[in-house]
Write a protein that binds this DNA or RNA. Structure first.
Lengths: 251, 251
DNA sequence: TGACATTTGTTCGTATATCGCACATCATCG
DNA sequence: CGATGATGTGCGATATACGAACAAATGTCA
């Protein structure tokens, strides 16, 4: 691609949108400039453009995104058949298992939830389509990374912030790579409270009819209710069944 | 705002993103140009920029959005405390009612779902945060429109495509305006299969501690299970209770 | 099949719009 | 009041959009 085939004004604007998020509901021009590392004048023009298009509100001091920006993300969710196709299977899976079931894809070092069927319980995880988790310590992340060529998986690990969310979190790249090989061979991954204490999950990859891994599905359960050792015995058959059904419908 | 405070390259790029969606997973340059009414060369630059930034994939012929664009919409969901605060209340509400509960805000002529707690049932509605419904025929839309000054509500109706989704859908602007006045006085709205046959719902507005309407919450139920006439009797107390609790925590 | 018409993708020159800097202005606070 | 930090603005250098022309692919019809 030639350099002139790049619209830097557009790229700068997208960076401005991403500056919002994670407890940053309202930003001033100067704050946004610092976060994006762009010139204040540039940021100002982008923010005023967003406001003019209705993607942001402006009270003269603070800018805040409006629900209209959801259209941008929604363009992906509604344009991609994947979430729509997977949802009913997920609903069924969740009902049969009596636990929450989710589907996700890989984006860089993170898994992104594209669909979810949650069970109403006392301990409920606050996840919904669009939510992100670090791939290295999530069950779906493990199967998605395990499906990649080793070099790619290692590259993603290198770029990941491998921190111990709990005392059980595996953070050593070598240990993780070994785990990926095990997951690849077994066809599923179990996480025992590596993301959050008290939470276990089990995931399997989902392939399309050509055998390419296009997503992962998982079942999450409270460790107090289902010990990690029992996850596979209880839920693997259900997951495998769903995986097989999806393989037939995903082109 | 001066004309020079508008970054048209950015605005054009956002239009390109929105061109995807609704059964348009993959677009060529020429298709996108037609949809956005932009020059092919301009569209090409925008799409290549998206691909370069990882927001889109390009196979030499078709462009497709990647999960990364969800970050843009997610910037709103995670930056706005509203969805996060409302979710646990919604979970509780859904559990007590034994039906799906949702929260939404108004965006133009549509309501946008910002949180949802769904019950696993045979007949389950496929809605999630980011989903959109026309406001005029949705229960949450009715209470949100009813909370606006009459002139504004009428303006939105004028801009709406008032079509009869079912034989029960109200499409006459005068009838709807009258309905808004009734909803405003009663403090809740009931929809009897106006959006889809077999689906009833009831909604109430949610105010912050200063009394401003910031969202709406609703409960949806199969008409076969709960006739519209029984919705208020069964669910209004629960909704009012949730509304009252939210009013205390929303600043 | 082959010739023609149509559509699509790409390149290029130039008029125009945007960027980033420097400076002006304004508000806040010790 | 001066210092600090924020927003608004004018201007030259630079980057981008537009339109047209070209190249390549695709479709059409005899």
């Amino acid at each position: 691609m030639r350099e002139s085939d790049f619209v830097s004004g557009f790229a700068r604007g997208l960076r401005v949108i991403e500056a919002f998020g994670e407890t940053r509901p309202r930003l001033t021009i100067a704050e946004t400039a610092k976060l994006t590392d762009l010139d204040r004048a540039t940021v100002r023009r982008c923010l005023l453009t967003l406001a003019d298009l209705g993607y942001a509100d402006y009270d003269g001091k603070f800018f805040a995104l409006t629900p209209k920006v959801l259209r941008l993300g929604h363009a992906y969710l509604s344009a991609t058949p994947l979430p729509l196709v997977i949802q009913p299977y997920l609903d069924q899976l969740s009902e049969k298992a009596g636990q929450s079931a989710s589907a996700s894809v890989l984006d860089g070092t993170e898994v992104v939830y594209i669909a979810r069927a949650s069970q109403k319980r006392v301990m409920s995880i606050n996840l919904s389509p669009g939510s992100r988790l670090p791939a290295y310590c999530a069950s779906m992340g493990r199967v998605l990374l395990a499906a990649l060529p080793e070099a790619e998986a290692r590259n993603i690990l290198d770029r990941s912030d491998l921190k111990a969310n709990t005392p059980l979190t595996k953070t050593d790249p070598e240990v993780l790579m070994e785990e990926f090989r095990r997951v690849c061979a077994a066809g599923y991954a179990v996480i025992d409270q590596e993301l959050e204490l008290g939470l276990c999950s089990i995931a399997v990859p989902v392939e399309n009819d050509r055998g390419r891994v296009v997503a992962a599905i998982n079942i999450g359960a409270p460790a107090a209710h289902v010990p990690a050792a029992e996850m596979a015995g209880r839920y693997l058959p259900l997951l495998m069944e769903t995986r097989k059904a999806l393989r037939l419908v995903l082109q």
